[in-house]
Computed example of a mutant assay.
Amino acid sequence: MTQTQSDKVIKEIFIECRPETLFPFFTDPEKMIRWMGSHILLDPTIGGKFRIDLNGHDIATGEYVEIVPNEKIVMTWGWEKSKLVPPGSSTIEFLLAPKENGTLLVLTHFDLPVEELASHNKGWTHFMSRLQLLAEGQDPSSVKAI
């Protein structure tokens, strides 16, 4: 299910793995790089910075705002060299809820300019599909590049 509202993108996806298995994909650079980016620097502590180089020219930066192990990650988000979504100008919340034999992952990306909603929706659809495959033990390379 995907919703796009005036200033946020909301994505929900069910992943067949426990929250304890999924959580490190947001805090361990070796796991994160497998579903997002080509070079990643993470300091997964409150106030810790991150830098995700997606492809050599699109670089996301921000900091961890809230971390509840196996339940929730909140990060500021922005793009180096962007006037519309500069570093720290938006916020991403990942909620991990146990459900049946897996995890319901709900991503909410807040404070986006209206003109950026479509591209961020497309990007998160792509990356969440890759994350789902990877966390379920499959090869995410089958997801087409954005």
Rank of each mutant, 00 (worst) to 15 (best):
S6D: 14
K8T: 08
E16V: 07
C17M: 03
C17P: 00
R18H: 06
P19C: 08
P24I: 03
P24T: 05
P24Y: 05
F26R: 02
D28M: 00
K31H: 05
M32T: 10
R34Y: 05
G37K: 01
S38D: 06
L42C: 05
T45Y: 03
I46S: 05
G47Q: 12
R51S: 13
R51C: 10
I52Q: 01
D53H: 13
I59F: 07
G62R: 03
E63D: 14
V65K: 14
I67T: 04
I67D: 01
K72H: 04
W77D: 06
G78S: 10
S82W: 07
P86V: 15
P87T: 08
S90T: 15
E93W: 06
L96V: 00
L96D: 00
L96T: 01
T103P: 03
L104K: 11
L107E: 09
L107R: 04
L107Q: 11
F110V: 06
V114D: 10
E116C: 12
A118Q: 14
H120F: 11
S129R: 10
R130D: 10
R130F: 03
Q132P: 06
L133N: 10
E136Y: 07
E136L: 13
D139V: 04
P140F: 13
S141I: 12
S142W: 04
V143N: 07
